[in-house]
Amino acid sequence: MFESLLHHYNYWMFIGLMMIGFYAMMAKKNLIKKIIGMNIFQSAIILFFISTSVKGGGVTVPILEHPEGAQGGFVDVMKYANPLPHVLMLTAIVVMVATLGVALAVVMMIYKRYHTLEEDEIALIRRKQGLKC
């Protein structure tokens, strides 16, 4: 029981980091803190996908050792880690930075207008102006 829980330790660390990020996104009032939480959340998910590509002992990086002499055109896949999650997650990292840039730009526009980054203070200002919040 305990052994099987420990075997899938990547699930536990993924869930722990994801919940830390989710807590920051939901419970923190500061907008920059929310973005930090989003960053932690996204990299936790990428960590989960990368950890599924890990195989047992004696596995190296997915680069072919002898490309010309791969025995009769066959490649021993058990010698290399699975490269498919790596390729997918490379795209996800770039998307992560793009969302980060857009989120920071929106936060700077909000600061220009309300001169604060706290969510409750922004709601108070909007209520005083008679707007919905």
Binding site: I32, N39, I50, V54, A81, M89, I93, L104
Partner: peptide
């Protein structure tokens, strides 16, 4: 350590590099 070196150096340059610079600029 998980033998995903391509993802590792993309993360080091893009997320730990440019992401931190963007954050410091915004703060």
């Amino acid at each position: 350590q998980m033998t995903a070196v391509d993802v590792a150096f993309t993360e080091a340059s893009v997320s730990a590099g440019i992401g931190t610079v963007l954050f410091i600029g915004a703060v």
